[in-house]
Design a protein around this nucleic acid. Structure first.
Length: 501
RNA sequence: GUCCCCUUCGUCUAGAGGCCUAGGACACCUGGUUUUCAUCCAGGCAACAGGGGUUCGAAACCCCUAGGGGACGCCA
């Protein structure tokens, strides 16, 4: 059999996610253990949501974790380009091939018609899906529409009867009825392919032999297998990993958990510990005859002992308590004093943040000994705060929660993380909530700096960054008793009333 | 709602029909070491979702039920 090739295919539409790193780790271990190659491909076919910044951050994060790839947009390879937005012609060509062979068809249905159709189907409790309307079009009608530049998409044909057997290396045979599968859009009206087409075409063209991905893809596997069949290609081996979970067992989400890799870096975790912890999710070192498998292991150890069959299928809860313990072991058992000094220095005193912090504290100190108390919160985890710290002459506890929650939401969609942008946002918000900025910022000081005596809170937010800001706001809201489900609804509608720019 | 996946201590997991009186780790509790604390060491608490089969024998294999999760987009 030819060389094993696996890939990680992140979509640059947000913060680098630990789930991406998780899947990357298993792809990398499998490839390395098999003596194969591990490829990075950027799936940026969603033009509305993909950003170059996000791509950069994802690459940086994966690099930080040493999940190194052999081919990718940054280092090239024989199967490029490795960014889907640069492969437009390839997809077009392949989609056309399917149209010509009769395995796909043009669809001219409007968004409105599809929305109504879906609504109707849901009301009638039918399986939502395309009704095949445009399949009935004659070649002449299609040509006519095309000539008149009617907006269109290309959809794949799906058998109406029978079922598809998906063979998963870990789960065995999974049978899914074809009538559960929609006539998937392959090419969007903007000329870009959907995930399903791009993924299949690229995996084939890039020689991917094993697709290791999240469990959420099981249900669309029939579409993918059908595409391989239409093209006359041999499908890769499919392996669906369990999904990382929140404490309540739902799919890991940033609303309930810090999911950004950047958060763990900024909180002062070692990349080795983070990767090690990820390796403990659904996998374990084999035990010897008289000893249990060691839980502290390097990526190389993991590769040396890797066996994909050892993956357990129950969705692991991403509970960082064990990560804390593991990180502590790395710090005190694995790192020498010299290494500790170096690694700590790199973390705390990198020129970028130091240059931002010094001007803020310089004007407020009289001795160097004043620096640590004043700047400590920049480097700390969550501030040690109590409900009473938020007591304020004109703000109730509910007001404080509201302010913090609104900021948390607003900050989420901020296009750029810059002090002036933040300032404008907070000023705007205070103004619209009809609260004096001075009062408005009071709970923010406590949440971010742990004290009302501190450097400018807006500058502080700018320095500590989105990940830590988000975490501290969440932490403070938690201290204040949190937001109930009902309360959240009310807050959300109030929040939507605000006109924030 | 329909389909699919999953199910061992609170959490991460070991377990490939007899080695299971179910093992380890985190967390928690107790004790020891330490001027304190942390570390470290010793000990403790704590689970096979339920019910039916198959078998001499089931945590493991099969079926049903329940619970959890996921998917049902011109998102990936």
């Amino acid at each position: 059999m030819s060389e094993v090739r696996t890939r990680i295919a992140p979509s640059p539409t947000g913060d680098p996610h630990v789930g991406t790193a998780y899947i990357a780790l298993f792809n990398m271990c499998f490839a390395r253990q098999q003596g194969g190659k591990f490829i990075l491909r950027i799936e940026d076919t969603d033009q509305a949501r993909s950003t170059p910044e996000s791509e950069q951050e994802i690459l940086d994060s994966l690099r930080w974790l040493h999940l190194d790839w052999d081919e990718g947009p940054d280092k090239g390879g024989d199967f490029g380009p490795y960014r889907q937005s640069e492969r437009g012609e390839i997809y077009k060509e392949h989609a056309n091939k399917l149209v010509d062979s009769g395995d796909a068809f043009y669809c001219f249905c409007t968004q409105e018609r599809l929305d109504n159709l879906r609504k109707e189907q849901q009301e009638n409790k039918e399986q939502p899906g395309y009704d095949g309307h445009c399949q009935a079009l004659t070649p002449e009608q299609v040509k006519d529409n095309l000539d008149r530049n009617v907006p269109n998409v290309i959809r794949m044909h799906i058998p109406r009867r029978g079922s598809c057997v998906v063979n998963d290396m870990l789960r065995g045979e999974i049978e899914i009825d074809w009538h559960q599968v929609d006539m998937q859009i392959l090419m969007k009206s903007d000329g870009m392919p959907t995930y399903h087409l791009a993924n299949v075409v690229d995996d084939h063209l890039m020689g991917i032999t094993h697709v290791i991905r999240g469990e959420e893809w099981i249900n669309s596997a029939p579409k993918h297998l059908k595409l391989y069949e239409y093209f006359g290609w041999e499908p890769p081996v499919l392996i669906h990993m369990p999904l990382l979970r929140n404490t309540d067992k739902s799919k890991l989400s940033k609303r309930k958990n810090p999911t950004s890799i950047g958060y763990y870096k900024k909180m002062g975790y070692l990349s080795e510990a983070v990767v090690n912890f990820l390796g403990l999710m659904g996998w374990s070192m084999p035990s010897g005859p008289d000893e249990e498998g060691e839980e502290l292991f390097s990526v190389q150890d993991m590769i040396d002992n890797f066996d994909i069959q050892r993956v357990s299928l129950g969705g692991p809860v991403f509970d960082t308590e064990k990560l804390d313990w593991l990180n502590g072991r790395y710090l005190r058992e694995v790192l020498s004093d010299e290494e500790f000094i170096q690694r700590f220095g790199e973390w705390a005193f990198n020129p970028e943040t130091t240059h931002q912090i010094v001007p803020l504290i310089k004007q407020r100190v009289e001795r160097f000994s004043d620096v640590a108390p004043l700047a400590g919160f920049y480097f700390s985890g969550m501030p040690d705060i109590k409900t009473t710290d938020f007591e304020h002459k004109s703000l109730s506890q509910e007001d404080s929660v509201k302010i913090l929650q609104f900021i948390a939401w607003a900050v989420e969609i901020l296009p750029e993380w810059h002090r002036d942008r933040l300032e404008k946002l907070l000023m705007d918000m205070a103004d619209q909530m009809d609260i004096k900025i001075r009062d408005f910022l009071s709970p923010v000081f406590i949440a971010i700096a742990g004290s009302s005596v501190s450097t400018s809170v807006i500058d502080s937010i700018a320095v500590i960054g989105k990940d830590i800001t988000r975490a501290r706001l969440r932490h403070a809201i938690g201290i204040l008793g949190g937001v109930s489900k009902k309360g959240a609804k009310k807050l959300e509608s109030e929040y939507r009333e605000l006109d924030l720019k």
